[in-house]
Design a protein around this nucleic acid. Structure first.
Lengths: 206, 206
DNA sequence: GGGCTAAACGGACTGCGGTCCGGTTAATAT
DNA sequence: ATATTAACCGGACCGCAGTCCGTTTAGCCC
């Protein structure tokens, strides 16, 4: 009948790349993600070790690394839902975060939302950002950077929107934000206020 | 005669803290620092392992960790000369980096100098900045932050100089600067140009 | 010089991220 | 049902940062 065989395990929630996936592999990925969320809930992000995770999920350590490549890869996978949600909101969501208002307003909203996002998921993001490549060249980071760059360009402010977007991006990095809040006790509203002032000065003509 | 006994090993170049230091300890620290510089020259910062360092210096591994606490501590020690030089220049050196010109000019000079410093010593700084504490709460980092904050305050620009200094500081972090130059091929002059624009917009009234 | 003590020494040990490879199994073709 | 094979599995293994503790020694006092 069908010349195209069914690919078991394809099309389930967590994207297995472009290829399909054997059913045992899919099952193990599910087990691992579940166990990972459980362990993080119990012991925090830093309390999760790859060996413990393997044991909890009832698989070998090699399997964990084949699925996620590295600890950072696992964290990125765990983060992907939260990141996708954030992306969706600033690209297609309602104003002032999404399109429909002047660029400066969107920039302000983007930073405020980002700060809130970091406060919620920053711990995970920190664990995912072990290398410069993971921090800057991963699709989510590139997208965020481009979004800021585009808004700066629309606002017609800086002469070098790419680098200015880099500066803005640096301002709201998880490590810095979490440190400011947790160690220096800076209130999130104060972070938002400084962000507002920063982008207001940077994203305007003259 | 003298009721104050001589403290052997005290007063040599590399500050041993507030206390004195036994002669063998001082000798080993010298050997270790020498061996470390040698190894970094040969294999790069990332190619230095604590075990290799111990072996090269002809001491045990425990000794390395007692002297420097951690790999990051060793890197900070190796960096301290370069950092002291940089600090001296922006605090007491000739204008426009040192005092004697309007704050905006000093801010511009500070960033340009910092970028150059990072290009020279950033690899070491990256290895020293393993934790948030090492990155933000170490004396050199605090001093640099305070310097930027003070200049912003003098310029009378932002309403929240402390946080604005944090943003400026984030812009010239080693990881970002090195990544921009090495991966994206951004020319240092372009970094300097963007810095100039950033501080010009941030550090002015109105 | 000889004894005393606090400090320094050094290497075995642990825990972790990450790799490797021989054995196993899911999917397919016959 | 059986054979084939590509993908998957698992745990032994490696290198590294960092710790621990029994041993050695520098500096001081007599």
């Amino acid at each position: 009948m069908s010349s195209i065989p069914l690919r078991p395990g394809a099309g389930n929630g967590a994207a297995p790349g472009a290829e399909s996936e054997r059913s045992d592999a899919a099952r193990n990925r599910g087990l691992l993600l579940h166990a990972a969320r459980e362990l993080i809930e119990e012991r925090g992000v830093d309390g999760l070790t790859m060996a413990t995770l393997a044991q909890r999920a009832g698989v070998g350590k090699g399997t964990v690394f084949r699925r996620f490549g590295s600890r950072a890869g696992l964290m990125m996978t765990l983060l992907s839902d939260a990141e996708a949600g954030f992306q969706g909101r600033f690209m297609f969501g309602p104003p002032p975060l999404g399109p429909g208002v002047p660029p400066l307003e969107r920039l302000i909203a983007a930073g405020v939302e980002r700060i809130a996002w970091v406060l919620e998921f920053g711990e995970l993001a920190r664990a995912a950002d072990v290398s410069a490549h993971n921090r800057f060249d991963v699709p989510a980071a590139v997208l965020w950077h481009r979004h800021l760059e585009m808004l700066l360009r629309e606002a017609g402010g800086p002469a070098d929107p790419w680098l200015m977007a880099t500066s803005l991006s640096a301002t709201v990095e998880p490590e810095r934000i979490l440190h400011a809040v947790r160690v220096h006790g800076i209130a999130p509203e104060r972070l938002a206020g400084s962000w507002r002032e920063l982008v207001s000065r940077v994203a305007c003509r003259a």
